[in-house]
């Protein structure tokens, strides 16, 4: 299965901005368990249904508008690679009155692999995919108390946008 512009069988694409010892590639269906475990390391919650559904949906439609990229550490003893991070996003159009833009739904890096610019490389990769899809704005939403993630996106040049999220507990 391909996710976004990549396919499981493709040769990993090496990018100039990738940190040494890691590579970024489009995730394949077979990667879902690895990414689920990276997510569990960061969030503390194991979500098999979520990850299975995410990859299943990606294989069905809108290829070229939904993207999952993973970062993997290369050069292991057995020659294998280990997932250490991922980013998930999608191009969405006209919701909330917005012109088409790229949404980053999730980005996570194994805490043991942080401070190595892995998150930065993942974000750059998905931004390139969004631009190739024809959009020029990238957006995300962050919990107000998630200072680490908000600092990360700020450090990557993102600022408050023209929308404000509102909610209420329904009676």
């Amino acid at each position: 299965m391909g996710t976004g512009s990549g396919t499981g069988g493709e040769k990993p694409e090496i990018m100039a901005e990738e940190p040494a010892g890691y590579r970024i590639r489009a995730a394949a269906e077979a990667d879902w368990r690895q990414l689920m475990h990276v997510d569990e390391l960061v969030s503390g919650v194991l979500k098999p249904d979520y990850w299975r559904d995410l990859f299943a949906n990606l294989s069905e439609k809108r290829l070229g508008e939904r993207f999952i990229y993973l970062a993997e550490r290369t050069g292991g003893k057995d020659g294998g690679a280990t997932a250490i991070g991922f980013v998930i996003g999608e191009v969405r159009a006209w919701e909330f009155g917005s012109e088409p833009c790229g949404w980053v739904f999730a980005i996570s890096v194994d805490p043991a692999a942080r401070e190595g610019r892995v998150g930065e490389a993942l974000l750059k990769r998905i931004q390139r995919a969004f631009k190739d899809s024809g959009v020029r704005i990238v957006r995300t939403m962050i919990a107000r108390d998630n200072h680490l993630l908000m600092s990360f996106f700020r450090g990557e040049g993102m600022t408050a946008g023209p929308y404000i999220q509102l909610e209420k507990e329904m009676e």
Binding site: R144, D145, H147, M150, S151, F153, R154, G155, G157, A160
Partner: peptide
């Protein structure tokens, strides 16, 4: 106040220096 606080707490000196340099 909550939004102001969250914003100020998310902007590091590294980010400020990057903005200035840009």
């Amino acid at each position: 106040d909550d939004i102001s606080r969250a914003t100020l707490n998310s902007v590091t000196l590294a980010t400020m220096l990057k903005l200035i340099d840009q």
